[in-house]
Design a protein around this nucleic acid. Structure first.
Length: 255
DNA sequence: AAGGCCGCCAACCGCCTTATT
DNA sequence: AAATAAGGCGGTTGGCGGCCT
């Protein structure tokens, strides 16, 4: 059997903020040996930390490919929309934002986006408008969220009024299907539930595999093609780009 | 200038899943 | 197949800095 991750017995384990020396030791060690068995890294690198702490420090702060600084409008929009689809699955959401970590996305959501949605009259938990907010206001909210990058936005689309209903349906019905519909590219994400008994008490288990292949050209992204596989009880949805359309790569899903 | 308040964010904690024996 | 360690994830906390009174 394996030994415990952290030596809770007697060894002295540092906690709290990392010093520059500790950071450097971890960087140096991983530069030579790569990421590997986190449990053995502290001892091997000469750190008085537990393996989990080393992993967290590396993943959230020291990794060279981390994109630091403010979130741009595209990223903000994407987080809001992915949160509507996935809920608090921060690692999944962060996976769609190159260079961002789950911790960073989570913090950004809790400190900025949640409050922003509340100010707009949107319940950040279910992305539904509060009772006193009219559907018109929701439309203007949707418009605001995408106007930075979407040239295909059409707030007069009556389907927009039902957007939050769809979002809610995937939150409450785990084994859902995402349909991409629209004219001239993907104009909206339609979430409908399939293979799920409304009356069952099955726990939420959103099994989505949103595989996105980027266009070879940075300025031209491609229309989504949806593939569906049925694996066990859940739908796995793979999304690839096919054909070309002018749009922001990160927002192609939601134009 | 000092103290209080608030927001941000790095880090910890504990639970769940996956891998290993 | 069962037990257990390791990894991964999301919720929460605590320290720090900036702003306000």
């Amino acid at each position: 059997m394996r030994k415990p991750c952290c030596d809770k017995g007697g060894g002295i384990i540092n906690k709290g903020a990392w010093s520059k020396q500790e950071d450097q030791k971890l960087i140096d060690y991983i530069a030579v040996h790569g990421e590997g068995c986190w449990r053995s890294i502290p001892k091997a690198a000469g750190l008085l930390r537990c393996g989990k702490s080393c992993r967290l420090r590396w993943i959230n702060y020291l990794r060279p490919d981390i994109k630091r600084g403010n979130f741009d409008q595209d990223e903000e929009d994407l987080i809001i929309k992915l949160h509507a689809l996935l809920g608090n699955r921060w690692s999944l959401i962060a996976g769609r934002l190159p260079g961002r970590t789950d911790n960073e996305v989570k913090n950004f959501w809790n400190s900025h986006l949640r409050k922003k949605l509340i100010r707009m009259g949107i319940d950040p938990n279910n992305h539904k408008p509060h009772q006193h907010i009219s559907p018109r206001m929701v439309n203007s909210h949707a418009s605001h969220m995408t106007n930075s990058s979407s040239s295909m936005e059409d707030t007069s689309n009556p389907s927009d009024c039902n957007n939050d209903e769809r979002i809610n349906s995937i939150d409450n019905n785990s084994r859902g299907r995402i349909d991409c519909v629209g004219v001239g590219g993907i104009s909206e994400m339609v979430v409908s539930c399939v293979d799920h008994d409304e009356t069952s008490s099955m726990p939420l288990d959103l099994n989505l595999d949103l595989t996105i292949a980027m266009s070879h050209s940075p300025t031209r992204t491609q229309i989504l093609k949806r593939k569906e596989n049925v694996e066990s009880n859940s739908k796995v949805i793979k999304i690839e780009f096919e054909g070309e359309v002018e749009a922001s790569p990160t927002l192609i899903l939601f134009n």
